[in-house]
Simulated assay, not measured.
Amino acid sequence: MTLLMVVLGGAVGAPLRYLADRAVTARHDSVFPWGTLAVNAAACLVLGFVSAFALPGWAAALVVTGLLGALSTYSAFGYETFRLLRTRARFLALANAAGSVAAGLGAFALGGAAAAVFGA
């Protein structure tokens, strides 16, 4: 049952990540990976929110591991930061690394604060 929940969540999260990344990237004429930054921050926001609630195991597998695991992507973040370094865009690589960590932590905290409003 748990594996099925992870698969179902991932089946939604992976295409959602791709579509959101493409939508954000299409709006920016830049080599900076805005799409990956946006989807990772969004996943952290939702994770911060749902972490405040006691989810049953199946729901955690579906939402946290499946959906949010597929939505966020550390590998793309690492690849895009390395690609910026290889093209000598050192400032953008540093901005991506620092900005991604700051945005993720901030979004997680914001999600947790929003959950508190809902009584979590």
Rank of each mutant, 00 (worst) to 15 (best):
T2S: 11
L3Y: 15
L4A: 15
V6C: 10
V6L: 13
V6N: 10
G9H: 04
G10M: 06
V12Y: 09
V12W: 05
V12N: 06
V12H: 08
A14N: 10
P15Y: 06
L16P: 04
Y18D: 12
A20C: 13
D21N: 14
R22L: 13
A23F: 14
A23N: 04
V24E: 10
H28L: 12
S30R: 01
V31H: 11
F32P: 01
G35Q: 06
L37T: 07
V39H: 01
V39F: 00
A42L: 14
A42P: 00
A43R: 00
C44W: 02
C44K: 03
L45D: 06
V46T: 05
V46L: 13
L47W: 09
G48R: 05
F49A: 06
S51V: 03
S51F: 09
A52D: 11
F53Q: 09
P56W: 08
G57K: 04
G57Q: 14
W58A: 15
A60Y: 04
A61F: 03
A61M: 07
A61T: 08
L62I: 07
V63H: 04
V63L: 15
V63K: 00
V64Y: 06
L67W: 10
L68A: 10
A70T: 11
A70F: 08
T73A: 15
T73M: 13
S75T: 14
A76N: 14
A76G: 08
A76R: 11
G78S: 13
Y79K: 09
T81M: 07
L85G: 01
A89C: 01
R90D: 12
F91A: 15
F91R: 15
L94S: 14
A95E: 08
A95I: 04
A97P: 01
A98V: 15
G99Y: 06
G99R: 03
G99I: 00
V101P: 04
V101G: 00
V101H: 04
A102P: 04
G104D: 10
G104W: 02
L105P: 00
L105Y: 15
G106S: 13
G106Y: 11
A107D: 12
A107C: 15
F108E: 04
A109W: 14
A109I: 03
G112E: 08
A114T: 09
A115K: 03
A115L: 12
A116S: 13
A116T: 02
V117C: 00
V117R: 12
F118N: 01
F118S: 00
F118C: 13
G119H: 03
A120L: 01
